[in-house]
Design a protein around this nucleic acid. Sequence first.
DNA 1: CACTATTGTCGCACTATGCTACAATAGTAA
DNA 2: TTACTATTGTAGCATAGTGCGACAATAGTG
Lengths: 238, 238
Amino acid sequence: MPHPLDSAYLPHLAYDSVVFGFSGEKLKILILEYHNTGWFALPGGFVGVAEDLDAAVKRGLKERTGLDNIHLEQFHTFGSVQRHRPEVMRTILKESDFAVEKAPWLLERFVSVGYYSLIDYHRVTPRPDALSDSLKWYHVEELPPLLFDHREMVEKALNALRRNLDTMLVGTNMLPERFTIKQLQQVTEAILGDKLHRTSFQRRMLATGLLRRHDKLYTGGSHKAPYLYSFVNKSAGE
Amino acid sequence: MPHPLDSAYLPHLAYDSVVFGFSGEKLKILILEYHNTGWFALPGGFVGVAEDLDAAVKRGLKERTGLDNIHLEQFHTFGSVQRHRPEVMRTILKESDFAVEKAPWLLERFVSVGYYSLIDYHRVTPRPDALSDSLKWYHVEELPPLLFDHREMVEKALNALRRNLDTMLVGTNMLPERFTIKQLQQVTEAILGDKLHRTSFQRRMLATGLLRRHDKLYTGGSHKAPYLYSFVNKSAGE
DNA sequence: CACTATTGTCGCACTATGCTACAATAGTAA
DNA sequence: TTACTATTGTAGCATAGTGCGACAATAGTG
């Protein structure tokens, strides 16, 4: 496996990923902080000269989250020249004691492909890379200022995610294998940033035919126990 | 303006565009044919080292269609290593009497950003570029075999276009300033590849509030004359 | 001046959805 | 054991949207 900063990568091309998770009834994303700068950004990376773009993104996520088989979706490619900020990049490298001369291509202009992914928050312990102090979850509505156009990336990723809510039961990708309808509703509400009506939501979800009800019951609350459900993808269901 | 094949471009990065038009009740796209090869492909191009990605695509479309202010939408970025076919590229250049040695970067791997655009067929006379014999309209359902992954690009562009039908009155971008509801329905049907019910479509279009009815009537058929409409964008309407 | 083809609109049936009502029930506290 | 509470599952009703058919209006044709 190539070292993340050697020259076996395509110049001028990068990817950035918006990793969504759900915890404490909030939608969260992974943000990294560069060494000694107080600068925050989305986790990203580069594409090997003989590597599929999708594979590069998966590799990066695997390194940072330990997860394989992540739900990935490409949402936009960012190609404005205003993205180019060589001073910023120079400082980041310097503060990580990385010799710029060894990889001058890092100071050049990059076009970046934006991906979002949905993961189960509770199955992940994020690991910062060589350039960053930390890789942590942030509530989508309480993000720190982000470098470059990463703020816009988050907005676009969120919009794409919302658009895809109809197509797929998005929430199931951020929940454990088995979940209650209430959990699914909470995820959906966190994504939409809006409240939904309980009974309508329940009826709509059941009408999709994409949920398999299990006889087992959830335990905990002092009230009627809800059913647990799991996601049934269409091909398997027919 | 840089010559299309000199080295003022970002290496490894290209764009391809799926240009939709509507004529003879069919949805059509622009396809070029390379010199002396019988090979067909989507019109594409490269991005200047100090040029916005969007601007590069606009420039390419302007050169080929003469149109400015085209409705453009980015739909996907293609980054598979299997796209790389240096022999094909070498043949294309050779058949156009272009010396490969002058631009070896053209034989390298490219990641390509896919855009689609919607234009008024009747306002365009397509112009082939230096490498191609022709640039012509083809019915979407009767395309010749295309090079590389361009067939997949067309499919993905069409899917994106269909998804966006709800959001925007897509059809209006492929029709003249003033049009009848019937024309709008025909464009929509061509995009969806399916028939719609006349009265439901009419009711739905009028209910959007995005169409301004003009008193003038269309002339020609031996029957009641339909109203003409023009598109009213939301901001102007409120 | 009838005839034809198309247009604009209305009405009806069916479906989806917002919202309310209500029975069922797992724990809690007397 | 027995109320009591909070939540869950489902049904009912009003409203909005859509598929589909009916019908009057009308621009040209023979």
